[in-house]
């Protein structure tokens, strides 16, 4: 076990990443309401401690990929807010040149291997990156995120089954935010404990709540270290909650105002702030928040001013070589 950094400096850094995701998405929601962003926009607000804690538990050369709720992980991995916002605006300066949109954030440089739009379909892809690491004799770990709504679909089970059978270094992270779009977990799963799904595959499992970003980092680091060491996969269920609807079109009428308010009191971003304030870091917090505000404002401006991709981009991004017609 490596000794974990628990300094205020690290905590401030993680707070900064969470605050960036929060503010980035709040501004994205505003731009969406103004009609500047089209299609779907699935916000991560409320779940930030997971992406940020997970990134802190991983190495930059490890592979990470997630669902269509992907802004948080991409920013945590190190994607520039400019490239992220420009992608939402459909601009050629976006991470995927304006071809992917909100659901398809990719960043090869930072080993962010994508956001994917088909529930569960990316889980075997994540396992495949772990397969490649093992095939080449590297010690990279792969981490693939999905919601509790994904654990009923076949690709989750095929990915889990093969990862266990072939002993692949992959961490399956179920972000259990209690609702698969509008359906509570009690109506989608026969068990309340998602991590039990590991049992049938003879896979290690862990289960905890995303109480704080440091807690998430600590728990995942221990798991990632073990996976790296043993090349055995693990299923991790992390209990969390999203404050917004499933996507921008969802008013979230399936849950009560009281439930939402209760959860917002446990907001991981707010809690990190309070804790750091108590440790006398008010000045640093204010500086960080100012920086993030500027960064997000700059990202919006950059996205607005960037050019759109032209039709000449379509053929070379469909095939690597000559277009096959």
């Amino acid at each position: 076990m490596t000794t974990l950094d628990t300094s205020d400096e690290l905590h401030l850094k993680l707070y900064r990443q969470m605050f960036l995701i929060r503010r980035f998405e709040e501004e994205a929601a505003r731009a969406y309401a103004q009609g500047k962003i089209g299609g779907f926009l699935h916000l991560y607000i409320g779940q930030e401690a997971i992406a940020v804690g997970a990134h802190a538990a991983m190495r930059q050369d490890d592979y990470m990929l997630t669902t269509y709720r992907d802004h948080g992980l991409a920013l945590a991995r190190g994607m520039a807010p400019r490239a992220a916002m420009a992608e939402l605006f459909g601009k050629v300066t976006g991470c995927s040149k304006g071809l992917g949109g909100s659901m398809h954030f990719f960043d090869r440089e930072h080993n962010m291997l994508g956001g994917y739009g088909i529930v569960g379909g990316h889980i075997p892809i994540g396992v495949g990156t772990a397969f490649a690491s093992k095939y080449r004799g590297e010690d990279r770990v792969s981490m693939v995120f999905f919601g509790e709504g994904a654990v009923s679909i076949g690709d989750f089970h095929e990915g889990m089954s093969l990862a266990s059978l072939w002993r692949l270094p992959v961490v399956f992270v179920c972000e259990n935010n209690e609702y698969a779009m509008g359906t509570p977990i009690s109506r989608t799963l026969s068990v309340a404990d998602v991590s039990q799904k590991a049992l049938g595959y003879g896979m290690a499992r862990e289960r905890f709540a995303a109480e704080s970003v440091i807690h998430v980092r600590d728990r995942l680091r221990a798991i990632v270290d073990r996976v790296r060491e043993t090349s055995e996969p693990t299923l991790v269920e992390i209990q969390t909650y999203r404050f917004r609807g499933h996507s921008m079109s969802d008013p979230g009428k399936y849950r009560t105002k009281e439930e939402l308010e209760e959860r917002k009191r446990k907001d991981v971003v707010l809690r990190a702030r309070v804790e750091l304030e108590e440790k006398g870091q008010s000045e640093a917090l204010e500086r960080i928040e100012k920086e993030v505000e500027d960064e997000v404002t700059d990202a919006i401006r950059f996205a607005e001013e960037s050019p759109e991709p032209g039709p000449e981009i379509l053929a070379p991004t469909t095939y690597t070589g000559a277009f096959a017609r």
Partner: peptide, 26 residues
């Protein structure tokens, strides 16, 4: 067995795994 791999009956699983492996260089 490292390069000629018997898979269980999981077409979606081993296709997806192969796609992921191809993305990162295999």
């Amino acid at each position: 067995p490292k390069r000629v791999i018997d898979a269980p009956i999981t077409e979606s699983g081993f296709t997806g795994i192969s796609i992921g492996a191809a993305m990162v260089g295999l």
